[in-house]
Nucleic acid binder design. Structure first.
Length: 946
RNA sequence: GCCGAAGUGGCGGAACGGUAGACGCGUACGGUUCAGGACCGUAUGGGAGCAAUUCCAUGGAGGUUCGAUUCCUCUCUUCGGCACCA
């Protein structure tokens, strides 16, 4: 399909096609002129526009489309796009019909917030951003198919996003629920769990609070198991796969019922370790738990606690994190395995949204329960022991410590010597002394007294706070500081009572690390090996009807509604008679109305709620008066399916073009930022699976191959607006050209790892580009014979560059291009073949520059649809081989031999032994052994010492 | 705390278990230039030595190996992600 283009290009550019090649025929390298010219030509020649219906070797090369929210495309975006484009161009030259689309993810809070900031209506701002982004995206010289661009805020696009919402609703996968949701007071909207980072809003960093609101959800949890299982089959960056697995967070365990004493009610808990059931010494309910709420009606203390807990922001909870609080309800539960009576507490370290919202606490084997038990003087019963382990011990102190505490917790100081463990009982009377030792800056004398490697102190203070310390010999310098830092820093730094316990002891490490242990103190269960035989326990409790197997996921349903303006109107109608009805498909799209007052209100309602003409409508079912949903959708829905739409932008009657989908999808290569490891990738997988289930497509994973690129930083620091070090590519493109910038970006470091952007570095690259340009003045006219050596270097370079690009190791690909240039520039004659090869290999990185020289030199059609060079292994072998000679593994000399000689070990040995540089190390010592690696290295092992 | 990645010259970074530092930046010296820039050439990990040469070096400590930047164990540091998920 490209064949007939050549002639036209030739005609356009005859002035440059002169065959006489004196120095004057090569003008000065002027990137700005060349780049603009070629971008125009590629566009008019449709160089990058494959025929979506007829392409023979479709290759879908996708990159994550940008949100055009901020000041423009920054160099980090360009880094990602260039890296993806290099791969696409490489595939195109290898004979594929590469489809490389681009668009804008323009709906959403990102864009709306930017509009707020600059004081423009989001619609106007979108128009401006669009223009600016497309101009910049054009300038970077990617092989985009501009005829297929899309924007998520275009009604022609979002009509179909709404259609997807309706399909989900029809299948019961979109539903409404009143839930305690994350609310960002700054952005004045609800956020998905995924958008809350450590209790802060992902976008504006303000503290997120909990609110009870009725919201739309997608039932992604129905797909949890499939989303998890498919991960193994994907060719994705490993760390992204790990992040997804972790996010889905499958856990297997049991649901267990506890009866409440003197009551009909039961409390169910979820646990992954039912084997610790005999170690349960209390229960804890989340403040959101129904029974907690019920209790609070009668019990003021509990009511107060719940109120306070709910007021606290997520971040406050985390900040106070380790300091657990709670309140005793006075109720008693019965442990179903041994009928022991245990107290029921309410505490906010138990999450309402996970499992059943209630736990059985096993302080001996769970650190959190342990902390809580220490704070509130609850008993600790060990029920798992490491096989043949010494008994765990620790020191507990404090003024209000009771004798009972001492008994129960077996207060000891552990003394570990090289030989093993020795327990030292610390009498209560002495505990104060140790406390003093720490306060008065411990001296080395302490260590003489107790030759301990490490000592743990767990101090309980009058106010109930618990602090832990680890002292160790390695740590002696810190000990002086210890006194001053008594109030928490050291133990936080050292952090690891638990880790330490894990190493030396029988505690929760068994759970945390899944190590093997043995059940103790548990009656008939004693001796069972866990965790291997937990299955056995579940069977046992199942038989006794105490509990049953259950699987839980960390993944929650996807909260979809947002109380903002600039987003996809949710296409639903609420009728007082018929309930929620989807907008009939023929009425789509539900257009986002033009509104003057579009700013978020913060009253839990979208700005759309104030527009009567929008809200008031008829019920599609009964025709009566009804109201539209006024919330808009989360942006992640827009981007969850855009790659399906790129190949159907010309279709107006349907969302998907089934035939093209089967031809082009799944995406062959998807490149994007690791920051979307979880959200975007998971959601788009979910939507794709849903399409599959609807019979719309035949596969359920959208991206066969995904690679996350690294982060581009600026002179050692992360680029960010607050630092003011965000690099905008425009000025570099203007000064050096897009080709130089592309080459430089790809050269900085491994694409997968990212790199550090330095201004001086780019000048070096500019130099390189200019040198290659100048090299053309030296092309000999005659078809000079290519030498063997030149042949070898050329094929070596082809091999290296080809393999490197395939593995996204662009930095080393470029360095070998430089080496190749260095080699060529030292030759007297350069054959056309060599020049041609260099240009072809450079083409994916520097598309305009190479195109210009290619067409000048060859008068042929675009370099970007020319055949990628293929190396011939027969040229790779060197006639002369360098063999490294080592004595005792240290390089002492090298020798050059012919291909044939290198096969003969005895000969090599003989030559090597004669070498003075080598044999002087023999010193009359006996040669014990000779190791020869064919063609590489020979190592003489000589007796060492006397 | 958990998971992941990474620690190599002045800097960005190269090295299928086999000559550590490719390539580039920077620097120095030289050439060219009225001069500066640009360009070209040479050198450039550290120590000792006039030199040939030699010793030391890939965060640290061990181990496997004839041989380790590379594999294993422990440890320290940095960065990224997750974070009270029972």
């Amino acid at each position: 399909m490209f064949k007939d283009i050549a002639g036209e290009i030739f005609l356009c550019y005859t002035p440059f096609m002169t065959k006489t090649r004196d120095k004057t025929s090569i003008p000065k390298y002027d990137p700005s002129e060349i780049e603009k010219k070629w971008q125009k030509i590629w566009d008019s020649e449709k160089t990058y526009q494959p025929d979506l219906d007829k392409a023979k070797k479709p290759f879908y090369n996708l990159m994550m489309f940008p949100y055009p929210s901020a000041e423009g495309l920054h160099v980090g975006n360009m880094y990602a796009f260039t890296g993806a484009d290099v791969y696409g161009r490489f595939k195109r030259m290898q004979g594929n019909d590469v489809f490389e689309p681009i668009g804008l993810d323009g709906f959403g809070i990102h864009s709306e917030n930017y509009a707020l900031k600059v004081g423009l209506h989001p619609k106007e701002q979108a128009k401006k951003s669009e223009e600016n982004f497309y101009r910049q995206l054009q300038a970077i010289g990617n092989g985009f198919d501009w005829s297929k661009k899309l924007e998520t805020y275009d009604p022609n696009y979002y009509k179909w996003t709404q259609w997807i919402f309706i399909q989900l609703f029809k299948k019961g996968l979109a539903y409404r629920k009143k839930a305690s949701v994350n609310f960002c007071p700054q952005d004045k909207t609800v956020l998905a769990d995924e958008q809350v980072i450590a209790g802060l809003c992902e976008r504006c960093n303000s503290q997120v609070v909990k609110k009870d609101l009725e919201q739309w959800f997608f039932k992604i949890t129905d797909y949890a198991e499939r989303l998890l299982n498919n991960i193994d089959k994907l060719d994705w960056s490993e760390k992204v796969k790990i992040a997804q697995r972790q996010w889905i967070g499958k856990s297997e365990g049991a649901r267990i019922k506890f009866k409440v004493k003197n009551s009909q009610s039961e409390i169910e808990v979820y646990t992954t370790r039912p084997d610790t059931l005999h170690g349960v010494t209390f229960m804890v309910l989340a403040p959101e738990h129904e029974i907690s709420k019920e209790i609070s009606k009668k019990n003021n203390e509990v009511g107060e606690y719940i109120k306070v807990a709910q007021k606290r922001t997520e971040q406050e909870r985390i900040a106070e994190g380790k300091e657990k609080t709670g309140v005793d309800t006075g109720l008693i539960a019965i442990n179903p395995v041994n009928n022991e009576e245990i107290p029921i507490w309410v505490a906010d370290y138990v999450l309402g949204g996970y499992g059943t919202g209630a736990i059985m606490a096993v302080p001996a084997h769970d650190f959190r329960d342990f902390e809580f038990a220490l704070r509130y003087d609850l008993p600790v019963v060990q029920v798992i022991s490491k096989l043949n382990a010494p008994i765990r011990s620790y020191l507990m102190g404090g003024e209000d410590i009771s004798d009972e505490d001492l008994k129960r917790l077996k207060i000891k100081i552990l003394d570990t010597t090289e030989k093993g463990y020795r327990k030292i009982e610390i009498p209560k009377s002495k505990i104060k002394d140790y406390e003093k030792l720490i306060e008065n800056k411990m001296t080395l004398g302490f260590w003489n007294e107790y030759i301990a490697k490490e000592i743990i102190f767990i101090f309980k203070f009058k106010d109930g706070k618990v602090k832990r310390f680890v002292l160790s010999r390695e740590n002696e310098k810190e000990i002086d500081k210890l006194g001053e830092e008594f109030n928490g820093r050291v133990w936080k730094k050292k952090a690891s009572v638990w880790k330490w316990l894990a190493k030396n002891d029988t505690y929760a490490d068994l759970i945390v690390h899944g190590e093997q242990g043995e059940i103790i103190n548990s009656g008939e269960w004693d001796g069972i090996r866990v965790p291997n035989e937990i299955g056995k326990i579940i069977e046992l409790i199942g038989r006794k009807q105490i509990g049953k197997r259950e699987v839980n996921y960390h993944l929650r349903d996807w909260l979809i509604s947002r109380q903002r303006y600039w987003g996809l109107p949710i296409p639903m109608i609420n009728c007082s008679k018929c309930g929620w009805q989807p907008v009939p498909e023929k009425d789509l799209p539900v257009l986002l109305p033009d509104v003057k007052d579009w700013k978020p209100k913060g009253d839990g309602q979208s700005p759309l709620a104030n527009i009567e003409s929008f809200v008031k409508t008829k019920c599609p079912n009964c025709g009566g008066n009804a109201e539209r949903e006024t919330d808009v959708s989360d942006t992640f829905l827009d981007s969850a399916w855009y790659f399906f739409r790129y190949i159907a932008t010309d279709k107006t009657k349907e969302a998907l073009d089934k035939q093209r989908i089967e031809k082009w999808l799944p995406v062959n290569m998807y490149i994007g930022g690791a920051e979307h490891s979880v959200l975007h990738l998971l959601y788009s997988r979910f939507i794709t699976m849903f399409f599959k289930d609807q019979g719309l497509i035949s596969f359920e994973e959208p991206y066969s191959k995904f690679r996350a690129h690294g982060l581009l930083i600026k002179e050692g620091a992360k680029m960010s607006k607050s630092r003011g070090n965000v690099v905008i590519p425009d000025k570099y493109i203007k000064k050096f050209g897009a080709d130089t910038l592309r080459l430089y970006l790809m050269f900085i470091g491994p694409f997968i790892q990212g790199g550090d952007f330095y201004d001086t570095g780019i000048e070096g690259m500019y130099r390189f580009v200019k040198r290659v340009w100048t090299l053309f003045t030296r092309i000999s006219d005659s078809n000079s014979q290519i030498t063997n050596e030149s042949q070898r270097v050329m094929h070596k370079t082809i091999k290296k560059v080809t393999e490197d690009i395939e593995n996204l190791r662009y930095n080393t690909a470029i360095s070998s291009l430089m080496e190749y240039y260095n080699f060529l520039s030292k030759q007297k004659f350069i054959s056309k073949e060599e020049i041609k090869t260099l240009l072809l290999l450079m083409a994916p990185f520097a598309p305009h520059f190479t195109e210009e020289l290619w067409v000048r030199e060859r008068g042929e059609s675009s370099i970007h649809i020319s055949q990628w060079p293929i190396y011939d292994p027969k040229f790779l072998t060197e006639s002369e081989i360098t063999i490294v000679v080592q004595v005792n593994g240290k390089m002492r000399s090298t020798l050059k031999v012919s291909q044939g000689e290198s096969l003969n070990q005895q000969l090599i040995e003989k030559i090597a032994k004669k070498n003075q540089k080598v044999n002087k190390y023999f010193n009359n010592k006996q040669i014990k052994k000779v190791i020869y690696i064919k063609g590489k290295v020979i190592n003489f092992v000589v007796a060492n010492g006397y």
